[in-house]
Design a protein around this nucleic acid. Sequence first.
DNA 1: GAAAAAATGTAAGAAAATTTTAAGAATTTT
DNA 2: AAAATTCTTAAAATTTTCTTACATTTTTTC
Lengths: 226, 226
Amino acid sequence: MNVLVLDDEKEIADLVELYLENENYTIYKCYTSEQAIKYIDTVKLDLAILDIMIKGKNGFEICKYIRDKNLTFPIIMLTAKIEDKDKITGLTIGADDYITKPFNPLELVARVKAAARRYTKYNDKNEEEKIYIDGLEISKEKHKCLLYDEEIILTPIEFDILLYLANNRGNVVSSEELFEKVWKEKYLDNNNTVMVHIRRIREKLKEDTRKPKYIKTVWGVGYKIE
Amino acid sequence: MNVLVLDDEKEIADLVELYLENENYTIYKCYTSEQAIKYIDTVKLDLAILDIMIKGKNGFEICKYIRDKNLTFPIIMLTAKIEDKDKITGLTIGADDYITKPFNPLELVARVKAAARRYTKYNDKNEEEKIYIDGLEISKEKHKCLLYDEEIILTPIEFDILLYLANNRGNVVSSEELFEKVWKEKYLDNNNTVMVHIRRIREKLKEDTRKPKYIKTVWGVGYKIE
DNA sequence: GAAAAAATGTAAGAAAATTTTAAGAATTTT
DNA sequence: AAAATTCTTAAAATTTTCTTACATTTTTTC
């Protein structure tokens, strides 16, 4: 979990860092909004803690900057206790939560955890890039392949070949193309390596040799998944 | 409930003691910061009341001392009324509340009770940071690992590796990713350090070499806990 | 502060799994 | 039926992981 912490009061930023590192978060600490913007542009953040009142751009503008970039991770605002409530309400638009200073560090940690939990809960469902083909389910990140909910153990090359075919569903892919995409090197002649791998994949997918269901041979051209 | 009270004005410390003892708290009263540090190091405290301005180390430094030791009990600061507000804000960082002198003793008692209540509330929630995997129980904060209620002594690196895998349960983690997350430095080639640690963890978890139950090898990709 | 113990890192050979090769069999097209 | 292409098989080659022993570093103990 990458957390951005922005506060021009060095002590507060340091304190937040101390507590959150203790919880195994990776902290991107900054004392200026310029620095914060640099992190927002370059790091894949999961959460931001912003002081409302800082020199230069204020926390609210940073918050707006994040939302304008269509980034959806949670934002927690820090506000001084003195500020009046209406003002705070206005400034925390776009943020998910706000905490008044001086704050109880345990409360901060608890709120960060809660926000992170909510965020990942929503995100997990969208994140998973899966391909469904009939009874076949291919999960790219997990490097997993399920056939009617039963796991099929594929070797790295087998997995890459199946994934490439699945990603190009409906199109015929030649042995040459497959080789160059999967091995990432030039295809040399009289090489039936691809063919042997295809055969093993078919075997693992329990294909009917005569009439394969998933990987079909297009005679004289290559293979395809329909 | 053990409460530390630090104030070099004897009368105030005595007053606080009087009121809090009446509420059945056990008071560790001190007039100097040296004495306070001795108590912090030796007594399992539940709350501290610190005067900001005292001879020698000031209350803020004692507060920092407590937080740097990763002690999380609430701290209430006492401040003279004259001090300006911004300064107080800065100085009360890490503290949970502050009270200006002269104060109403009943208010003090009320705030102490409130702080104690919040503390136990947040703490209960955080206590539950455990991961359960079959007969394996990993306690993040306690840095402890139990296998069927029997403690498994893991070294820091071993613990971090197991925790990372457990936190990413279901996903394959490559040696490279593991190395960069646990060691926090760039992964260099022909490096089987991770592998050796995995082996040692498996040994301690009494894994069947041929068919490990917890840490599985995903050939050509990495390791995973299912 | 030195000695002992524990933890971590390294390297090399063994073991296991994957990948490639090659040659004959089967299938499809002409 | 002949030619072209694909399939099958098994063994050789390669890659990756495992194991082991020992060197080095860090931590603990006295």
